[in-house]
């Protein structure tokens, strides 16, 4: 078991490396693509920054605190994007028959799908994440005990798993229905749009929906509230904020099982 896992991780790294080398073949596009990834995420932060420049706080959150929240969510987002970008392109891979080839190889199909990308945009997301989070660390007032740091690391990984589980479920769906593009666009956009802002700007109904139905709040808002000591405004129990690592691991496992189940029903393309 451990041996098999080690092998899959080694293969993952080899394949990811190959995908990166392939992406850098188009030199002219390397820089612009990374800039585009950064601009995509950065324009959202620029919006908050300009807003706070005028108003000072939004729903009681200062610039440093929002930067912390924004940076945390971007780190989670970049983490799943950098590692599993290819899963987000599952419908293309299936339509073009690449999944057939993945099923013919002695390696986990999800590992192969995850590395099946030619985009460098995730690294733009990642650099913006590091930048925003770096700014936050210099401005925000955070308790830096070892326990808090450990929680932060686990929460970022958990947040990445929450987002990744949504993408894996959609990949599972695209095994059955070939065109999931619009579906994925809407789901990912919901995370992109809502994940990085203090959800206390909404009423308690929306907050609960974004906690229990579409778990956007677990990605950054709830754990950041805990770390920043801002749990007073939450419409849901504050201890939920500590659960992000568990929620992430659970959702990702369920998503993986769903994907595996869907693969059994794979009908191939063009028979």
């Amino acid at each position: 078991m451990a041996h098999r896992l080690r092998r899959e991780i080694r293969l993952y790294l080899i394949l990811r490396g190959a995908a990166l080398r392939a992406a850098t073949q188009y030199r002219g596009n390397v820089l612009t693509t990374m800039l585009a990834g950064a601009a995509y995420q950065g324009s959202g932060f620029a919006f908050v920054w300009v807003l706070l420049h005028t108003f000072g706080t939004v729903a009681g959150w200062s610039l440093g605190q929002i930067a912390f929240l924004y940076g945390m969510r971007l780190l989670s987002h970049a983490l799943w994007l950098v590692t599993m970008d290819g899963v987000g392109l599952s419908d293309v891979a299936i339509r073009e028959g690449q999944l057939d080839r993945m099923l013919l190889r002695p390696a986990n199909p999800l590992v192969q799908l995850a590395t099946n990308t030619r985009s460098l945009m995730p690294f733009g997301d990642l650099s913006m994440a590091i930048l925003v989070f770096g700014i936050a660390l210099t401005v925000a007032d955070v308790d830096w005990s070892p326990a808090a740091v450990l929680f932060l690391v686990l929460a970022v990984i958990g947040g990445a798993q929450v987002e990744a589980s949504v993408v894996v479920v959609i990949a599972g769906l695209s095994v059955r229905i070939l065109d999931t593009w619009a579906f994925r666009l809407m789901m990912l956009d919901a995370f992109d749009t809502l994940g990085s802002y203090p959800l206390s700007i909404f009423g308690s109904g929306v907050q609960r929906t974004l906690t229990y139905v579409l778990p956007v709040a677990f990605v950054a808002f709830l754990p950041a509230s805990v770390v920043l000591g801002r749990t007073g405004q939450l419409a849901v129990p504050a201890w939920l904020g500590y659960l992000t690592p568990v929620v992430g691991a659970t959702l990702f496992t369920l998503a993986y099982l769903f994907w595996k189940r869907q693969l059994r029903g794979y009908q191939g393309v063009g028979h």
Partner: peptide, 17 residues
């Protein structure tokens, strides 16, 4: 592997198998 030199496909296949 479409964008890589042919030899790289061979090393990748060797690793996979």
């Amino acid at each position: 592997w479409w964008d890589l030199p042919l030899i790289e496909s061979f090393t990748l296949v060797a690793a996979l198998y």
